[in-house]
């Protein structure tokens, strides 16, 4: 038996955990068909850990859904498989290539895979009839997200209307939807990047190895370090360099840059982030850089 709280105070990490577990249980109790959107990234792994705690010792009362861009890092897919196996969870994979074949998404050669995830995701939600989809979004990530609710209502077209959001008071969540609509649920709304790392550190949970510093061949492009691979080859004047790097986010490999780092464990990463000077998206996500309102535009269309 453990008792570490003689003074009846919970640390902020324990408070965040309690709040997220409350959200998971509330959704499982009130929605007919929830699903957890799992990318294999650190945020969705923390979500999975919280869901595991919320329903232990029962299995998760909902499946996981991954949108496969076809450009995921191998290390991310293998971590995903190991989590799914350990939890005995049900996994649904929706691929962009299938969505293109089905006509949900058009590949015009200009649109990034990240943007094509939107149509793929909405297609999968509709096909399976999911009424609630957990996402790993955090309010500290970006200005548009700062105003999003924990329960974020999506209309028939999967769109978010920032001006028509429902008020959200106390811990009383309103899960009412009409047929055809669904709710995005963000159990990590109040977590910051640093909280996520503290939690991974404390819980000692498995995350993809590319989050930790390793040697990799990279190309510097538009101020980002991109990993050399089938899609990323040096263009005029660019050189391939071998550097100690790590990834701060793990999106599709053509869009996700890495940063130079010596941090090989979670404690070192926490130290690094505590003094980091650039937000994680600003540093390493090409898809957010096109305009100041990039995220807001994608969210209105139904992005995570």
């Amino acid at each position: 038996m453990t008792n570490t709280h003689v003074d009846y105070q919970l640390s902020q990490l324990d408070q965040l955990e309690a709040e997220s577990i409350h959200i998971f249980r509330e959704v499982a109790a009130e929605f007919e068909k929830p699903v957890l959107m799992f990318s294999g990234g650190k945020d969705s792994i923390v979500m999975l850990r919280l869901a595991e705690k919320a329903f232990f010792p029962a299995k998760l009362p909902f499946p996981l859904l991954q949108v496969d861009t076809g450009l995921d890092f191998d290390e991310v897919l293998s971590t995903r498989d190991s989590w799914v196996e350990r939890l005995g969870a049900r996994m649904i994979v929706a691929t962009i290539d299938e969505a293109i074949a089905a006509g949900h998404v058009v590949d015009d050669g200009k649109t990034s895979r990240n943007r094509m995830q939107i149509g793929t995701l909405l297609g999968a939600i509709e096909e399976h009839g999911f009424t609630a989809a957990f996402g790993g979004g955090r309010r500290d990530e970006e200005k548009a997200r700062a105003k999003e609710r924990v329960y974020s209502h999506r209309d028939d077209f999967g769109q978010w209307d920032p001006k028509m959001q429902r008020p959200e008071l106390w811990s009383l969540y309103n899960g009412r939807i009409h047929a055809g609509e669904h709710m995005r649920i963000f159990p990590l709304s109040n977590w910051t990047e640093l909280d996520i790392w503290h939690y991974i550190h404390r819980e000692q949970i498995e995350i993809p190895s590319i989050y930790f510093a390793h040697e990799r061949e990279v190309i510097e492009r538009d101020g980002m370090l991109l990993s050399l691979g089938p899609e990323i080859q040096p263009k005029g004047g660019e050189t391939v360099e071998k550097k100690m790097v790590r990834f701060r986010t793990v999106g599709d490999r053509t869009q996700t840059g890495c940063v130079e780092s010596e941090a090989t464990d979670t404690a070192a990463i926490i130290d690094e982030i505590a003094i980091a000077r650039v937000t994680e998206r600003g540093a390493t996500r090409g898809d957010d850089r096109f305009s100041e309102a990039a995220m807001e535009d994608r969210k209105k269309e139904g992005y995570f």
Partner: peptide
């Protein structure tokens, strides 16, 4: 891993307002 590193431990255990 350095789970009892004072720096990281202190930050995870701070309280919330």
């Amino acid at each position: 891993m350095a789970s009892n590193d004072p720096h990281t431990a202190a930050q995870g255990e701070m309280d919330l307002l």
